[in-house]
Design a protein around this nucleic acid. Structure first.
Lengths: 240, 240
DNA sequence: TGCGTGATTAAGTCATACTATAAAAGGGCA
DNA sequence: TGCCCTTTTATAGTATGACTTAATCACGCA
């Protein structure tokens, strides 16, 4: 992820959150260089490096004379870990969460299938260790969340498919978000989720690809439902 | 994509290709700033902006004193359009193509299903126009390739799921690569592919999600098989 | 032998000057 | 009057040199 201590990183962060929030007008222009710099009083170098960093993620595009523009949203790298983190911070809207869950639902079962077919002993050990990490720590505590993320990430690693593994950050971000929303006293869901995880682990351990995929589907759907329930209880109405 | 004319872009391109080729040692260090700059005689500014650009894509990570390192491969943004393009140029190995096709096989049928369910009239018109573009131009000609890419991209757009749409570049890159490999006289496959596309279009037009998914699966599998055949005929042996 | 401290070195930051480019304004020609 | 070409001008791009910050390593002290 991004080193948060470097100055250019702070500038990039600030700009990015603004862009994602839609402060800088949605599809087009961006306040000019000098103005922004004077606002946050930072050298030109730092500002420009921040812009280049964001350019690399597709958030902005700069052209001489015409200025630095906010790129159209569909050229943003929404699967980039930093971009996802910035979204968390800026714009936690329900549609985005649903979209991410939809993606999970397409990808993660297939990933689990591959993991079941291709896993090494080490892979299995890592997945199992993560699962145990979820059981020995209190529900929704930080180590538990980390173990949950590690569980899913380890499955992606076991697929031995690097491009596919690039989706792991998106999945993890989704999980992190949904866990963050949950009330810490939602014990019922936690237990159910634990069972879901154990069943996936079991299928992968048996090298049963189809079973792993099916169980992972179940896990994702359960997680989606409970997250939607929480969202509904927070901000009622306008359910599509 | 990346403006290729700017100096920092050229530097970034050069560095990236080297990194992907594995010239700069795989997991760790990278020649220091001054050395590289003297080699290609470019100002510090341009070099540093190039590095920041690559940092945004996860290819490198720089820390004071310890130097700028090539990031471990699993933090690379392999789904980024630029990174994919650089891979084409640097390292067209079979494993990577297979991995990308695998990803397509997981994602594109689901995308086709959503597209069938959610498409607007405009969406359908765009997909249909792209299909016609494939029929009226000569096989494997540039306009035909562009139409093919537009076909798949339009389907992703019709899903109305931005994170999912981020996978479109990866799919397009895969297609572009496989079409590039094909001998221009491979008429048989082209006709078959055209039929596959037409069937997908038809299913989406009917709003039949399951059918669209199934037919898209068929399309991807056909494309994969023909691509693997070509790869085998080019560089025999070591098939896993 | 072990640990803290300072020297070393590479990246990070700043300030300033100059260049290149593209968009818009202005002037000349048909 | 209308169009094209040139000039202006604003903005990002590039260059350079000085200075700051922060890891790493080695030295020296306990």
């Amino acid at each position: 992820m991004l080193s948060p201590d470097r100055l250019f990183g702070q500038v990039a962060h600030k700009l990015a959150v603004g862009i994602i929030r839609g402060v800088s007008p949605a599809g087009e222009l961006l306040p000019n260089e000098a103005d922004i710099r004077s606002e946050i009083s930072v050298s030109r170098t730092a500002y420009r490096e921040a812009v280049k960093f964001l350019t690399g993620k597709g958030l902005v595009e700069a052209r001489p004379k015409s200025g630095t523009r906010v790129a159209p949203r569909d050229s943003w790298n929404l699967l980039d870990p930093d971009v996802l983190a910035w979204h968390f911070e800026a714009d936690p809207n329900e549609k985005f969460i649903r979209d991410l869950f939809e993606l999970r639902l397409f990808v993660e079962p297939s990933a689990a299938r591959l993991a079941a077919q291709r896993r090494s002993g080490d892979d299995l050990a890592r997945i199992e260790a993560a699962y145990r990490g979820m059981t020995v720590n209190p529900p929704y505590a930080e180590p538990t969340v980390q173990a949950d993320l590690a569980f899913h990430e380890a499955i992606f690693e076991a697929t031995r498919n690097p491009p596919l593994q690039c989706l792991a950050p998106a999945v993890c971000a989704t999980i992190q978000w949904s866990l963050f929303l949950k009330a810490p006293d939602d014990r019922f869901f936690f237990t159910a989720s634990l069972v879901d995880h154990e069943r996936v682990l079991d299928a992968i351990s048996q090298r049963d690809g189809d079973l792993a995929a099916a169980r992972m589907s179940g896990l994702v759907i359960d997680s989606l439902n409970s997250t939607l329930r929480l969202l509904a209880s927070r901000a009622p109405a306008n359910a599509s």
